[in-house]
Amino acid sequence: MPPRIRSSQALLLNGCSSPLLSSFTPSHTVAAAAGAAQTTRQCPPSQHTQTSYFSTTAPLELTRLRRDFETWLRTQGKRYRDPTPGEPCRYLGNTKQFSPKGKVFPLNPEFISQPVLSESAREKIWRSVMVDAQPLKAVSAKYSVDMRRVAAVLRLKAIEKQWEQEGKQMALPYAKSVLEMVPVNHLTPERPHEPINDIHVHGYTMQQIFLPTSESREFTRADAAKAFGEHILPVDQKMRIPELLAFEKDLVKGEERRTAEENFYEATTKSERDIADRELIKSQLEEKRKLRVDTDRFEFRFEQISVDKAGRKGRSRSAVGWRYGVPYNDRRRGVVKIPTSVE
């Protein structure tokens, strides 16, 4: 295969046939010679910027734009290159007016991020539940963090601690930079994280009902719930931490705050213990229905069921096993198949 000559270089060689020039001449000599030739013989100038390992063409010097950019990086742009920690958002553009905390996307000022729990806050929650053995409800009420969030923090922290023990590498720089962008809550008593008493508003309770009752009758919240529907729960029971009601009532009654808090702590502890007991009994009953037969390879777990569940016609939904003559829509389109629970 003959040696390839780049088209412009070939042009140069053809156009200005100087005895000085050969394909082995170093590139800067070529450029200089071309410059000289341009003045005398009007040769097209060399315009290479690319240098490959096989090319003998020298790269051009920095362009002005490039030079300006480097200067900018050394002066104004330094803050983007080496950011100071704690600075909210670093975006190019209107740099005089930095977006305040919460406005994560400067071009979308309508979006304001909710504050998230900081690393120390999550550690605080984990410590108070796992080390100090406080009930979940009490921790939730103490820091004003939703119960579900407390539970999520505990689950994630458990994984984090396990990974730490296993020596797994964690994406800490990523977490750090994300936490720098969004508003962060460190869980101080004077700054509640989020409302914890929000209840779900049932559609039935949105209607207006004219309910005649006698004047002498005491009409409570429970009665109001009954009026909306038999299955509607009163607000007191719908709250995630109904023990807070007793706490407030204690305060209204004139109890000391300390006593009320102690009562609240006791009540939440008891409720947590009750739930644990209930779960234990449930699992024990389940275990009782099971017979485990261990063989060399597998353990066979026989669960006792009743064929009567199939109903009189044998087509009941609660019947055991795959059903006959009924479509099984596990692969139907448009149905979310992501599991909703983790064992």
Binding site: F298, E299, F300, R301, E303, V307, V320
Partner: peptide, 25 residues
């Protein structure tokens, strides 16, 4: 009853022992 022939592991069991689930009246 039903018989699930695919052996399964318990989520938090590290022993590696597998089990099969059978329901039977």
């Amino acid at each position: 009853g039903t018989y699930d022939p695919v052996p399964k592991a318990d989520t938090y069991d590290k022993s590696g022992k597998l089990h099969k689930d059978i329901k039977l009246d």
